[in-house]
């Protein structure tokens, strides 16, 4: 479960969140939507513990959360497969390969990520979060840099791997939320 209870956050005097409340139960799929600067990514960073709230409380088990960050945050010198295996030491290579093969051409899986295009890197970041196999998945603008057809196939892979999991998505595109079947919350 995730619960934001009257959470406020400001940066250099500018109030970004004011008494923000959100509750997500197991299996919920929610998309936070709103214009740039409304605090969507701040909610994600608060949930991950990267930021601390000025006021209010956040209830969530951080060990249960995997994330696709707004930026890819990949280990550029390592292969796509290494980037996925990195997050779960006990994960077998065949499992990571099975996730990656749905998102990347097979010949690219063993190549260093630094040689990839922006869209391919985005797909590796998504594969890494799926491989972490945690109960909650935070997706911050997961489809940025992907074209229409790729978005659909990537969304299908996310849905396949997130059955019964809690999903919190951050986006400014209503169609992307619909691809994941997420309930939209306007901020």
């Amino acid at each position: 479960m995730i619960k934001f209870n009257n959470v406020s956050k400001s940066f250099e005097g500018k109030q970004v969140l004011e008494r923000f409340n959100l509750t997500l139960l197991e299996g919920d799929r929610v998309c936070l939507m709103g214009p740039s600067g409304c605090g969507k990514t701040t909610v994600g960073n608060l949930l991950l513990g990267i930021l601390s709230p000025d006021e209010g409380e956040i209830f969530a088990n951080r060990d249960d959360i995997a994330a696709v960050f707004q930026e890819d945050r990949l280990c550029e010198d390592f292969s796509a497969l290494s980037n996925c295996r990195m997050v779960r030491p006990d994960m077998s290579a065949p499992y990571a390969l099975s996730v990656l093969s749905k998102l990347l051409p097979a010949e690219d899986i063993h190549k260093p990520v630094r040689t990839f295009s922006g869209g391919m890197k985005r797909r590796v970041a998504i594969a890494r979060a799926l491989c972490a196999d945690r109960k909650i998945l935070l997706l911050d603008e997961p489809f940025s840099g992907l074209d229409g057809d790729t978005k659909e196939s990537v969304a299908a892979t996310i849905c396949e791997h997130c059955h019964g999991k809690t999903l919190l998505m951050i986006s400014h595109d209503r169609r992307e939320a619909e691809l994941l079947g997420a309930e939209i919350i306007e901020m």
């Binding site: 991950l48 513990g49 990267i50 951080r62 060990d63 959360i65 995997a66 994330a67 960050f69 930026e71 945050r73 280990c75 390592f78 290494s82 990195m86 997050v87 030491p89 890494r128 972490a132």
Partner: peptide
Amino acid sequence: KMTEMADVFSLPLGRRLLY
């Protein structure tokens, strides 16, 4: 940002060293 990623995915010391 990479250190934050390592924190989110709870990477142990050995993997932080390597990656």
